[in-house]
């Protein structure tokens, strides 16, 4: 496996740890942390800082009943929640989003496929399947767009992205990521653009039309 070179920046990791990152991005971070030791270490460091804040930011007395309620519940039976593990190229957080099932792909044309994992007015996150030489579809975004490679690789004006790499793009970045030769590129892509039916179309290959 090649070395991961595009990681989760500190501010994003702090927001993810604190839970202030919107769900589509949080899924990308959780998936990357599942694949990347360096970011796992970063995640643990941010948890340690959160723990220091918890230890030192003040106390509020709890009611007497709370402790006896909790102690009385220690031996109560609890239903165990399913834990989804990595399957193929899909790490645990994606399998959880898929509820343990294989992705249901929908064709976008030119061999490009997508599988929407979740979406609402605030953003969306989806799997993309891009054959070699095809462009990664344009998500359309107002703020941040995150694309994590799960299989294969893509390249654009800013560099090369292999398995585990995350590309962060803000609205100022004009880029045309193209899947490289080799196995089809499978990515996890999150955007803050509202999810609309059919809004997701293959990106035109700009250079071809540029004179």
């Amino acid at each position: 496996m090649t070395e991961i070179t595009h990681h989760i920046p500190d501010a994003l990791m702090a927001a993810y740890t604190a839970g202030s990152l919107p769900e589509p991005y949080a899924l990308v971070v959780a998936t990357h942390v599942s694949m990347c030791l360096e970011c796992h270490a970063s995640y643990e460091a941010h948890q340690a800082l959160g723990g220091a804040v918890l230890e030192t930011s003040g106390e509020a007395a709890v009611s007497e009943a709370l402790k006896s309620d909790v102690l009385a519940l220690l031996d109560a039976p609890v239903a165990s929640e399913p834990v989804y593990k990595r399957t193929g190229v899909y790490p645990g957080p994606i399998m959880t989003a898929l509820k343990g099932r294989a992705p249901k792909w929908k064709s976008l044309g030119l061999g490009v496929r997508q599988c929407i994992l979740s979406g609402n007015a605030e953003g969306s996150v989806r799997l993309l399947y891009i054959p070699p030489g095809q462009a990664v579809p344009d998500h359309g975004h107002n703020g941040l767009e995150m694309t994590l490679v799960l299989q294969g690789s893509f390249s654009d004006e800013t560099g090369w992205f292999g398995v585990g790499d995350v590309e962060l793009a803000d609205q100022d970045l004009e880029h045309t990521p193209i899947a490289d030769a080799g196995p089809p590129c499978i990515c996890l892509a999150a955007t803050d653009a509202p999810l609309r039916f059919n809004s997701f179309v293959p990106r035109l290959l700009q250079p071809i039309f540029r004179i």
């Binding site: 839970g19 899924l27 959780a30 599942s34 957080p93 989003a97």
Partner: peptide, 22 residues
Amino acid sequence: IYQIARNRQIDVIRKENRPVPE
């Protein structure tokens, strides 16, 4: 415990499960 608390708060406030790493 900090991480457990934040995850739980988010589940309560947003009514969604926060994605967690494997």
